[in-house]
Design a protein around this nucleic acid. Structure first.
Lengths: 248, 248
DNA sequence: ACCTGAACACCGTTCAAGT
DNA sequence: ACCTGAACACCGTTCAAGT
């Protein structure tokens, strides 16, 4: 019975149909379908994506896609791993673990913000496609070189990359929301702030956080977020350094 | 035009219809609807929740709910803030910021894992309901007492609570997935591990991470995760301590 | 004031049929 | 081998109508 549980396209999905070499192009294949899926998800978002819209974009009937893919979820897993391929993995170096962590974190943030639809998918699927696997390997590799004790390395990975996941998710959603409302991030931010200030419950909070915002500085929403991200990342690296001696 | 942008039920949604005091109960109201929504989301998950199922659970026609709520999204915001009320906010104490952070982080994790459907909603909505606001206030408050320089306090908040968000999201989804497959977490974990080991791409990674897993110890999936969470949290606190002297 | 029913424009997926 | 068409069991939401 355990064998009947579906885990992931990558583990028990059907493999890609190999295109006949002599085929005059024109026809579908898994790659074309995945490309079109990513394009649609980037432009319209996860909520508006459907098998029927995808089929229309491919100039084909709704059911054709099912020849290449078992379910919508399998297709989303394929799209997810495709954009995970945009992650820029550092060359292995012997000693520069701090720079490698910064590099991986910055790159992961960029992918999350550039393709906000992946956030729920990262949470939902096992995320074991080839690109996700390469990323995991790079993360694992750098963590073994930090000097953290072995029993803390998984926790170290979690602290850095779950932080980036959370940060990138919220950032990506906010950008998306602004774009959908037809406003810049700064316009939307001002609009929300003034709505919040008019509300009795939230008003006090805003006033308390204003001091914090002013201390942080930054002209735009984007500036503020960059500063927060950078500070948090240095905090995490300092945390790793502090925990290196720590046993049990 | 900016005024036409919908931000949140809490800011520009219609307010709750006040129930007539003399009404013989039996009738609907916003509270009953929100309670039923949370119950359904807990038992069936976000994907299966629908206005029609909710109406059926309330013994009422699909459209009745729309008398109390503008859209499904508004209802989800109400449900989200309701479970945010389960967060256990610490009493303000003068000096014990470390314990307060631990307390808030543990409580937030618990809510995320107990109601996995909130993760996408936290990302999607502004999250400015009364309970979410109280939580933000508590977080803000404790961060000002860490000794972090003002320009780093927003980054400090992000590092801790985006980490918890990411961690709790993945943990909650995994538990959900196991329950839906009718397996315990340990059964599902073994199943996925063996599937991953059979796959050429992911096999090498597994072997590399096995050493890390053994060092960490722990009998069950849940044990392992608790250890990782605790280590990561101490790492974050150590990071805050290290950044206290840090200016710009 | 509160609730219903029919309707519109959608979904993912199955299944039998075409070429 | 690949693609289509019709059908099933769903969605959120509008709108006019009932009590």
């Amino acid at each position: 019975m355990a064998a009947a549980v579906r885990t992931s396209v990558w583990l028990d999905g059907k493999t890609a149909r190999s295109r006949k070499a002599d085929q005059p192009a024109g026809g579908l294949d898994r790659e074309k379908i995945t490309d079109a899926t990513v394009r649609l998800l980037d432009s319209e978002g996860l909520a508006k994506f459907s098998m029927r819209r995808l089929a229309a974009a491919l100039g084909v009937t709704a059911m054709s896609v099912y020849w290449y893919v078992d379910t919508k979820d399998d297709l989303l897993e394929l799209a997810l791993d495709q954009v995970m391929g945009e992650l820029d993995l550092p060359d292995e170096s012997v000693d520069a673990w701090r720079d490698e962590i910064r590099h991986l974190a910055v790159s992961y943030r960029k992918v999350l913000v550039g393709h906000p639809w992946i956030s729920p998918l990262v949470g939902e699927f096992l995320n074991v496609g080839p690109h996700a696997t390469a990323f995991s390997a790079a993360v694992l590799n750098v963590m073994t070189r930090t000097g953290l004790p072995p029993h803390g390395q998984a926790g170290g990975i979690a602290s850095v990359f779950q932080f980036v996941y959370g940060f990138g998710t919220v950032e990506g959603h906010f950008r998306d929301r602004c774009a959908r409302a037809g406003m810049t991030q700064d316009e939307y931010f001002r609009h929300a702030m003034s709505a919040v200030s008019r509300n009795a419950d939230t008003k006090a909070n805003i006033e308390r956080s204003r001091a914090m915002m002013e201390a942080r500085g930054g002209e735009t929403v984007e500036d503020m977020r960059d500063r927060d991200f950078e500070f948090a990342l240095e905090l995490l690296i300092a945390g790793i350094e502090a925990m290196r001696e720590h046993t049990s």
